[in-house]
Design a protein around this nucleic acid. Structure first.
Lengths: 125, 125
DNA sequence: GTACTTAGTACGCTTTACCATACTAGACGG
DNA sequence: CCGTCTAGTATGGTAAAGCGTACTAAGTAC
């Protein structure tokens, strides 16, 4: 019993999710598009000032490839490209909200642990 | 309006979660300990045959540092070390289940899209 | 003709994640 | 004295993720 479990049912699901929303920028991009609706490339860039253009492009391409967002190109000069959440992408919002909720629960938990650590001398040599 | 959003409330929560459960092996380890209870180091290694010892050690240390699991050392020779989910770590199970559920929803969605793609000539040059 | 606009691409670099292999301690069985 | 057991550590490598800077196209405004 308890043989190789690394490609079990549960694991594949979690891994698939991590592949779609994992990485440094994807949650941010998804958050913006989910909560603020359609955005142009330049708007996203200004809303995430620390991302480089190259990264923003690549992350948007991956999200589009995975069917989370839709890229609409207007044939104009200067160029205009809009990004928005697809119908399938909408289904992510509950997962992201749950992750956000747990994340805050975790942060609070850490904080209270740190305070305890300061009161006791548990971690002193 | 719509200024820098990259360290907003929601994003920090999601990022914190990803830092705890992200990576190639952590979801697997958590899955095992959540669903099968306490395990020894060697048991985990045998249940995840493709992980290297070094990786298993480092991932377990990080999960312990983040308070998800507890490491119990028996002062015996040969060594005996047990790992099990902490009380705080238990709270992860709903998040992992949700992620798993969405992952499968996503996989099914991809499958049906692929089938559609084979019927139409949408992606032909 | 020069500068400005937007949505990118191209290049090379650094940093992080992950992997493979070899090694250790200390008791026990033979 | 030799090999076996467990739970690691150490070292050095590859692969992937991410970063910084420079460049492009094509039209408009000056």
């Amino acid at each position: 019993m308890s043989e190789d479990v690394s490609n079990s049912f549960l694991i594949n699901g979690v891994t698939a999710t991590l592949q779609v929303i994992g990485g440094k920028w994807k949650p941010i991009i998804l958050y913006i598009l989910l909560n603020e609706g359609t955005k142009r490339f330049g708007e996203l860039r200004r809303m995430i000032p620390t991302i480089t253009q190259g990264m923003l492009t690549s992350q948007l391409r991956e999200l589009e490839r995975d069917g989370m967002i839709i890229r609409r190109v207007y044939q104009e000069i200067p160029p205009k490209v809009e990004y928005f959440i697809s119908e399938h992408g909408q289904t992510l919002s509950t997962v992201l909200n749950d992750m956000c909720g747990w994340g805050f629960h975790h942060i609070e938990h850490k904080k209270s642990k740190e305070e305890q650590g300061q009161l006791s001398n548990y971690s002193q040599p």
